[in-house]
Design a protein around this nucleic acid. Structure first.
Lengths: 337, 337
DNA sequence: CGGTGAAACACAACCGGTTACATCAGATAC
DNA sequence: GTATCTGATGTAACCGGTTGTGTTTCACCG
């Protein structure tokens, strides 16, 4: 078998308790003793047993990340931010997605698989009314949300209303008045990202005294294909918009494709603005409201780790809002009648 | 505190041993007894303690996934395949990314963090000579590689030589003779994906009696930006190629951008073929050799789970090769002098 | 009807740490 | 010189399961 703490203790001529304290940096250990124990442990190539440590201490040293998608840009980028922080904090990252990658297959919900298994949970952009989300919250363990806000739960997001406003205002400033919008899904649930961005859109329109034409709203489901369909729908109207606000870059990509199919060029014939700052947006010359996606994950993870490390101290529930930035590229241009 | 197996045992009037066997479906438990125990456990909302179970049994029920990148398309797509399988197998997925030569992050290597912590390891496309990879292999635990092959280690890949051949042959079939290539990094390490694809490229060229012009080889580092630079280098030659084989779709995207910057149109002025089947390749009308990326992860995970479940039986080390498929789109066209 | 064996279950020894509490030596205080 | 305190360390009771080794029951057989 492998080396146990007992072996180290014997080799160092101390008790396992002292070894445990010495290796974990606890106080009340003589500096010399600690050093000797560390040396011996290294020599013996001793590795602590996480299972035993967890069982005895009650802490698992791991955090679950729950996400609806793994392979989509936004989610994998958030995940990379989270991972980097957890790695530095020496915490294990348990990855769980709540839907199968290809389809809507029914798999067992994550909540039961979390109990007694992790110290905290990070949830990426699940709809605020999602049942699985609430099952997770019902576990009542330290949790942080990313990309969603919910009362009394810590969260890290951008100001989606503002993002919608900024994007829309940009189009308005360029002189556009007939502005279309490609939203996510036709849900009436409040507070989702697309809902908020839509509110920002409306506010900007209203503030400018412009009408929101309901026939210029189309659903893109946050996918490229969806964005393409949505844009096609807008273009085949009797009176198409001169500018379009797509609520995600990926939908904007789809929209660009639809425009090309119709012989139109983004920025020349129709202005298009997205939200995200997707890797490809620069490549495709898309004007977009950039959000610091990796930081969303990073900061949420940092906050959670901090909370787990602060002994009992009731960390105040705060929702952190990160800034966005409009990057103007070739896909938007002044309105020409 | 929460319910323990003892509570269930008492409530059912049996020993903890019987509860343990009953709930895990082991034999030698009366059908009636088992049912009763299951019912009582459910009523009590009993959840087994993973730590205790792991400590006692020696199995962790979790698998580590080691990857150089999380947010890149190939890696996150593989990961999604892996996750789906592990979820179905009720195994925990520990995600760890490793620092890479180009990534400046100096973080502790994954190998030490694996010991006693997971039952098996899945490694995604680490260079075959990577030190961290070999540290992981030295742990001598069940391991499967994805996107790399190494002697005596199970792996799941595509035939990269063949992929290179197919892509190149496609260009040759179209009548191109002056063919450039955008490879990954200037390494002399054998057996990496780009090395193999390059070999396929050479083989196809040789078989067709064409010369491989070393000045038409450029490094794209598997990134969009790198592909753009590489293509720019090719275009600014005194005698540019009429067709280019980019060893990944993302580098091909960059190449497309470079072409546009030079007023050239992919498929009309210069033919371009990639490898991957990236989500955006259809959108950008890129001809590419599609590899089943998600299946790579899925199948590797399935094999590993199977190995872990087969009791001691020496599963033969086999490297699985998945098929690729050339998808011809608008970025390639016949050579016109 | 005693012998036999298998099925069903109980006992208890682990698995390998953590930590409250006890102990002990040396320093400080008086 | 003794009482007191403090820092360093040992003792041992857990943490909550798993599993090898009995023990009991009972059907089956000669």
């Amino acid at each position: 078998m492998s080396i146990t703490i007992k072996d180290v203790a014997d080799a160092a001529g101390v008790s396992t308790a002292t070894v445990s304290r010495a290796l974990r940096g606890l106080p009340n250990v003589d500096a010399g003793t600690r050093e000797r124990i560390q040396r011996i442990a290294a020599e013996l190539d001793y590795v602590i047993s996480p299972s035993a440590s967890r069982l005895a201490s009650g802490r698992t040293g791991s955090i679950a990340v729950i996400t609806p998608y793994i392979a989509r840009w936004f989610f994998s980028t958030v995940l990379s931010g989270v991972e980097s922080v957890l790695q530095d904090a020496s915490m294990d990252l348990l990855l769980m997605s709540v839907s199968t990658p290809d389809g809507q297959q029914h798999r067992l919900p994550p909540a039961p698989r979390l109990r007694r298994r992790v110290d905290g949970v990070l949830v990426i952009a699940l709809p605020p009314h999602d049942q699985q989300l609430h099952e997770v919250l019902a576990l009542n363990m330290p949790t942080s949300l990313i990309g969603v806000t919910l009362a009394d739960i810590p969260s890290v997001t951008i100001d989606d209303v503002l993002a919608g406003q900024i994007a829309t205002q940009h189009l308005i400033n360029l002189g556009h008045t007939r502005i279309g919008v490609i939203t996510g899904a036709p849900v009436e649930e409040p507070f989702t990202a697309d809902h908020d961005r839509h509110r920002g859109f409306q506010q900007a329109m209203n503030a400018a005294g412009l009408t929101v034409d309901p026939t210029l709203e189309s659903y893109g489901y946050f996918t490229i294909a969806g964005g393409e369909q949505a844009m096609t729908a807008l273009l085949t109207q009797r009176n198409p918009p001169s500018a379009v606000f797509a609520m995600s870059d990926e939908m904007a990509f789809g929209a660009m494709k639809a425009m090309r199919s119709h012989g139109l060029q983004p920025g020349r014939d129709i202005s298009l603005v997205g939200v995200d700052g997707h890797d490809m947006s620069e490549f495709l010359d898309l004007t977009t409201v950039v959000q610091p996606v990796q930081d969303l994950g990073r900061i949420a993870a940092e906050a959670l780790v901090l909370q787990l490390r602060s002994p009992g101290a009731e960390v105040e529930v705060d929702s952190i809002i990160l800034p966005t930035q409009l990057i103007v590229r070739g896909s938007t241009s002044p309105y020409k009648a």
